[in-house]
Amino acid sequence: MLAAHLSRPLALVALLALAGCSAAPGPDGINDPYEEVNRGWHDTNIALDKAVIKPVSTAYGTVVPDPVRKGLSNVSDTLGIPGVVVNDVLQLKLGDALHNTARFAVNATIGLGGLFDPATGMGLEERDADFGQTLYTWGVGEGAYVVLPVYGPSTERDALGVVVDIVLDPVGNLLGNPEASYKTGLKVADLADTRYRYSDLYESVLYDSADSYAQMRLSYLDNRRYELGTPIVAGAETADQTTTYDLYEDFYE
């Protein structure tokens, strides 16, 4: 049963990886053949942020007390750990898989279902992994830069990774209705909390930049390549790297 469940998404991975992720970045370190379409989605995402995401996150951050918001975010993070473990195994990082399994066990029990994070204090800090990273480990190229609706900046490889992470999510597959919708709700609450906490940083790039599209593209590619240990965008060494990395890690992760 499990093999049948995994075979379809993994076959999709193989086909799309061969078809869409082979092109290399240009001399400037950027591969953006879909820029016109990407800018359209970027503008749509900004409009959505102004009309919906910012007002909702502001209301959430203002009405819901900080400890409650933090606790709900902790639960969401804890429910995401089994998916991280799957990617650890696929990358043959068995030490990280054991580490994250122990982190999940501690937070799910002592941490009261993930409301609290005693695991970090015990030396079981967060070690993230995703299927985009797994594809990189398997040798799949970055592909072109893309902007996804709502989600924002990505690449062909990482966009495919997002889809596969959703398909292979162990918790999401085990939960039935309405429990699965609760998990989705917790993730939305987590994103709203992050949008609220880092509002100034996010908006300084999104609303105050001379070209927010180019800045977001630089921020995403810079940070993602840094995470994976690959070259950053050419010329990016002149940018404020601390702000660049924080923007991606704090909001899009």
Rank of each mutant, 00 (worst) to 15 (best):
H5S: 01
L10D: 02
L12C: 12
L12H: 15
A17L: 14
A17C: 14
A23H: 13
A24S: 09
A24W: 06
V37S: 09
L48Q: 09
V63S: 08
P67I: 10
P67H: 12
K70Q: 14
L72P: 11
S73R: 13
L94M: 08
A97C: 03
R103L: 03
V106K: 04
I110F: 12
G114N: 02
L115K: 10
L115H: 08
P118S: 12
T120M: 07
G123L: 12
D130L: 05
Q133G: 06
T134S: 06
G139F: 05
G141I: 09
G141R: 11
G143N: 09
V146R: 04
P153G: 01
V163K: 02
V163E: 00
D169H: 15
G172D: 00
Y182D: 05
G185Y: 12
L186A: 01
R197S: 02
L201I: 01
Y202M: 04
Y202V: 00
E203W: 05
L206H: 07
L206C: 10
S212T: 02
Y213M: 05
M216C: 14
R217F: 11
R217G: 09
N223S: 09
R225K: 02
E227Q: 07
P231V: 02
A236M: 10
T238N: 11
D240R: 06
T243A: 04
T244C: 04
T244R: 15
F251A: 14
